[in-house]
Design a protein around this nucleic acid. Structure first.
Lengths: 117, 117
DNA sequence: GGATAATGATACGGGTCCGTAACGATCGGG
DNA sequence: CCCGATCGTTACGGACCCGTATCATTATCC
């Protein structure tokens, strides 16, 4: 069964969650970083710079820079692939998993508060 | 009746919509800009710099800069208040309304594609 | 082994954003 | 009328991000 949601509900949900994210202020990820982070944590490993760049439709430096930033925040880790040492495998972290889980709870909670229309 | 959504659904929806936003590439608004834009288009006017700053929990220059950027994109307009010429009233535009409407449709469409769990 | 290809990282110039602090314009009370 | 309060904007130094181009490292193929 599909998830039914009305346009006005979608907008109010989108606004409220973004308000929460801005007010909590801890992360402040860009749209690209959010897409990268969720791809890493939702899609099956392994993840590489090239693969992520292709999925997002952006250039490789974008991914490298985003991984730098998210690495500083402790949300992901990089590790060279031992089978093909040209590749870098992006790995999940406990902090990253917690952040993703918190985002999910936030969306669920705000959705629950959305009234009828 | 509340809007029921499971954590895994929320995350997949969040990821898919962000992927679409990145791939379309036209806007690429930050979380703050998104919150500002949706507040302007969902909450009752009038909107002022000070009021938006208070709602988002950020400083006034943040709002000024965001309005500069969104003004260049044609998403909002500024106009001095004739009754109190210190105030600036933020107004909606046709392009902004269209962008908001497109975002709503995107969320609705992606939600509809979200499978059971 | 040497040429070729592929991967991720880096340099660069330009743009945006941040928070703090200062500023000009405007209103309002004494 | 003038002084303080309020509004939005701008200046500043620092940080981040973008896309293009280039680089070092590693694998592959003849």
């Amino acid at each position: 069964m599909p998830l039914e949601i009305k346009p006005s509900q979608a907008l109010r949900l989108w606004r409220q969650v973004h308000l929460d994210l801005v007010r909590d202020g801890d992360a402040d990820l860009s749209a690209r970083q959010t897409a990268i982070l969720l791809t890493i944590y939702l899609e099956l490993p392994p993840h590489t710079v090239r693969g992520l760049a292709a999925q997002l439709g952006v250039t490789k430096p974008v991914i490298t820079r985003a991984l730098d930033t998210m690495g500083k925040l402790g949300l992901v880790t990089r590790k060279r692939d031992d089978f093909d040492r040209r590749n870098v495998v992006i790995q999940r972290t406990v902090a990253g998993a917690l952040a993703v889980e918190r985002l999910a709870d936030l969306v669920v909670e705000r959705a629950r508060e959305m009234g009828g229309s």
